[in-house]
Nucleic acid binder design. Structure first.
Lengths: 151, 151
DNA sequence: AAATAATGTCACACTTTTGAGAAAATTATA
DNA sequence: TATAATTTTCTCAAAAGTGTGACATTATTT
């Protein structure tokens, strides 16, 4: 039986990835525990979301940066990023959601936001290079491909 | 001034696309009306969601099918689908969300579900063809590209 | 087996969300 | 301008969601 706290966090990431304002009961159900137990580990919703955010930042983000640094060849980089996205699974969905949330004021001073920006700048660059190399249809803008990729 | 009911539906699609359990007040705000007015057009949340679903099924889905039928050339088809996705805008996000929702029991008997399946079968086929033509890296599975595309 | 820690159950107060009635205010229409 | 339709305002009660205390139950450790 995995550590309860860990299981709660994983459940929360899964649930919040689909629905950021889902009732905590859902998270508890998903983790196969009581809501009361959940509240023993996390004082309130905000705390839980905050921990999820940290967990995501540290695991999902690292994977992305590693993928980018895995090669100098844009096509390989892109592929690595795709696989990194797969491996992150549902974390990726929440990663995106949290950085798009209206409550989240994006500010480049913040290290997390800076890293987030760095990832997508890198992504942008890769696409541009691929277009120069004629391997990607120039009609597809980096923005669109990025949106695609975030899905 | 656009028809109120229409505006409510569009607002709802926009809001629910980001957060399926967002309070109806948000939808009302987004439509620049009162919550009371919203309730005069839709008895309850479920009814509103249901109408959104219909709206999406009929507009977004049609666009996709049209895109697929626009050509016999897989690359052109893929491109058309991408643009169709862009044009559908936020509807696309909810389209996906609703068909993944846990409350939604996917059953191929249902016409909507069948159409949904048909779209992704077609998508799958296009990717396979592109891979055969050597225009897409075979390492990228159709499933992943599909997930990508859904974003 | 006894002590300890973790989880569950039930109850409670509190907040937010929901849905609807009644009447005033606004807007559209004849 | 008078009339009708629509929307807003204010109100309220019911429902759902949240967080916590007190105590019972179950697991784990010693």
């Amino acid at each position: 039986m995995k550590d309860t706290k860990t299981r709660i966090i994983e459940s929360a990431i899964e649930i919040f990835g689909e629905d950021l304002s889902a009732p905590l009961q859902k998270v508890a159900d998903n983790a196969a525990i009581t809501r009361r137990t959940l509240h023993r580990y996390f004082a309130d919703r905000n705390e839980l979301v905050a921990v999820c955010r940290q967990e995501i930042e540290s695991s999902c983000k690292k994977a992305m940066l590693r993928a980018i640094q895995s090669s100098n060849e844009p096509l390989v980089q892109l592929e690595s990023m795709l696989y990194a996205g797969i491996n992150c699974g549902s974390k990726y969905a929440l990663f995106k959601r949290l950085h798009q949330d209206e409550n989240h004021y994006h500010n480049p001073e913040n290290k997390n936001c800076a890293d987030y920006d760095a990832i997508f700048k890198a992504f942008h660059k890769i696409i541009i290079q691929l277009q120069i190399q004629g391997k990607v249809n120039p009609a597809m803008s980096p923005q669109w491909i990025q949106t695609l990729h975030m899905g």
